[in-house]
Each structure stands twice: as structure tokens, then as C-alpha cells.
Design a protein around this nucleic acid. Structure first.
Lengths: 79, 79
DNA sequence: AGCCGATGTTAGATATAGATAACATAATAG
DNA sequence: CTATTATGTTATCTATATCTAACATCGGCT
């Protein structure tokens, strides 16, 4: 008798790759600036995992944008 | 090409508690809507950990705001 | 004084983010 | 063509977010 959650997030897209290209950065460049591994950036671009808020923020800062601009959520909706 | 800044995030504040009060929700109410445990909301409010981006998003949606409005980052600086 | 709903806090378990190293492939330069 | 650089991908490891179940504390209410 628990109630199911109201918010569902089906999928999350990111504009990391697009913005990284705009600034002509390699995955490794960006990774170095953010302070993570190259693979981590690669996995993020491919949506292979759900970053921590701090990581999302750091990537956004390095790409001169905001979290809300960098990540796009597609909702399943409010039920 | 600029000199590679390394981003440091010293601390993160959140307005969860403030907004939760505005909508007159208990931690448990919000937790149920978001789909996490009450303690998780409590720990988030106290800055005891760094949520995933999806969780941050869901909390923001439940509080009628955005991630960028809900979480405030204090930078250590671009160095 | 009690009770009760909300929050704090702990300890242990599980899930997963992110690290690391390795190797493969694509594209590009030479 | 080979050499190199950027990216894809896999497997294993560690750190930590989140779950779960307790129990404590605090505040409001009668």
C-alpha cells in the first residue's frame, strides 16, 4: 500500500557532444577540464549513465552553459 | 583555445527545504512524489550527498522549479 | 504531563557512478 | 600504405548514492 511515484523520467538526452564540438574539444580535453576520465565523458554522451549533479554542473560550466540547457529530460508524465 | 580551467565545486546548497515548506509538503510527501525514501530527502536537504541528475530533476519538477534554481553551487574558482 | 506527526541519525545492505586498464575501430595525416 | 589521434567498448574495481529498518529527538496539540 505504497503509492507509486508521480514523476517518471523516461529518458535523458544531452547536448555535450554538440557543445564539445562547438568549442573544438576532444572527449579527453573536456574530461581533463572537468576532472574525470575520457570514458566517463563518452559514456555520458551515449547516455550510458546518469551523472551526479556535481558532475553535470562541472560539465555545464566547462561548456559555458547551464545544467538545464545541457540535459534534456523527456517525461513520461505526471500520472 | 583558452587555458584549461579546472572546475572545482566546493559546496552545493539546495532550496529543497524552503520550497517544500512553500508547498506545505512533508519530507515524506515529497519523497513519495519523487519516488525515493523520506531519509533520502532529508539527507539531500542537509547536503549529506550529491544526488544523481535524474533525482535532482525529479525533485525540481515536484517543486515546480528547475535544477538550476533548486541547487546553488559555490565554486572554488576556475584555476 | 502525555501522545503524535515530522524530522534527525545510525548501521548495514544493494545498486550504480566513475576509475582504470586494455583493446578495437574510425578517421586523418604523413 | 603506415602512424597517430579520437572514439567506442569491455571487464573489473572502488566509492558512494540510495534503500531499508530501526530508534531518537523535537514540536505541536489536548
Amino acid at each position: 500500500m505504497w503509492s507509486s511515484p508521480i514523476i517518471h523520467v523516461k529518458k535523458m538526452k544531452t547536448r555535450i557532444k554538440e557543445l564539445r564540438a562547438r568549442y573544438d574539444l576532444t572527449q579527453e580535453d573536456l574530461a581533463n577540464r572537468v576532472g574525470v576520465r575520457r570514458e566517463t565523458i563518452g559514456f555520458l554522451e551515449k547516455g550510458k549513465y546518469n551523472p551526479s549533479l556535481k558532475l553535470a554542473y562541472k560539465v555545464a560550466m566547462c561548456l559555458q552553459t547551464s545544467i538545464d540547457e545541457l540535459f534534456i529530460f523527456e517525461e513520461d508524465d505526471l500520472k
